[in-house]
Design a protein around this nucleic acid. Structure first.
Lengths: 111, 111
DNA sequence: AATAGTACTTTGTATAACAATGTAATTTGT
DNA sequence: ACAAATTACATTGTTATACAAAGTACTATT
């Protein structure tokens, strides 16, 4: 029951950090949804449900922080590739700045 | 409208980080609720609504990560002081460990 | 006497993660 | 050749949490 506290905490911690991480990943490269989930699992050891990612990407599109384009594959299901808009890059700069601030704060209090 | 994206993001970011920061603060010292809000505003530049903090402290009590005691003042309203339980200290160690992991991840991708 | 500040509490709303389920095509295992 | 797993996107309902707003009660300031 106290083990689930950590599990729940990690889930709550994603609210905010996930958006932040994904925007940063998209700053370097274009990715499609399913690929982002794999990237996060492999490189960040974060397990993201599909029901988390796809709605999140739609929110980012609605806010016009990312744009998307369908790319047909020679074979298989077409992929929707996401990339950062100019507005998205500006917002990301603000987010990075606040994240750094948060780091400074926590570094002072963590034992 | 895009300015409110950052505002909302900071609010979402608190889900998880706030619990984390408060438990770390309580690791060094006992504090009462109103004092925690002041501490966060002054030292972390985080503005926490009372309707955020008090329910949070009650959740932490229910989970037995913190205990509380009323302390009567010579004058004025009595204060409810919170302190970390042994269980709270153990959970906090796990949280700090995961937070450090998150740092390593984000440091690699932030421009 | 009125206003601001201290200190805790409760109620209702909005947001986001997630489990579950669904669709459709492809690849792998036997 | 067939079943199962994987790839890829999407939707619905549930749950947790921050926050605005309002309330209670006492103290300090003007």
């Amino acid at each position: 029951m106290n083990d689930s506290f950590i599990t729940n905490w990690k889930s709550q911690l994603k609210k905010g950090t996930l958006t932040f991480i994904i925007l940063n990943i998209l700053h370097e490269n274009e990715f499609y949804g399913y690929e982002l989930i794999e990237q996060l699992r492999k490189h960040a050891k974060m397990d993201i449900a599909e029901g988390t990612l796809y709605p999140l990407m739609n929110r980012l599109k609605t806010e016009e922080l990312v744009s998307s384009k369908w790319v047909e594959q020679g074979t298989g299901i077409p992929r929707k590739y996401y990339s950062l808009t100019e507005s998205g890059k500006n917002i990301l700069r603000e987010m990075n700045s606040y994240w750094n601030h948060l780091q400074t704060i926590t570094q002072k209090i963590i034992k």
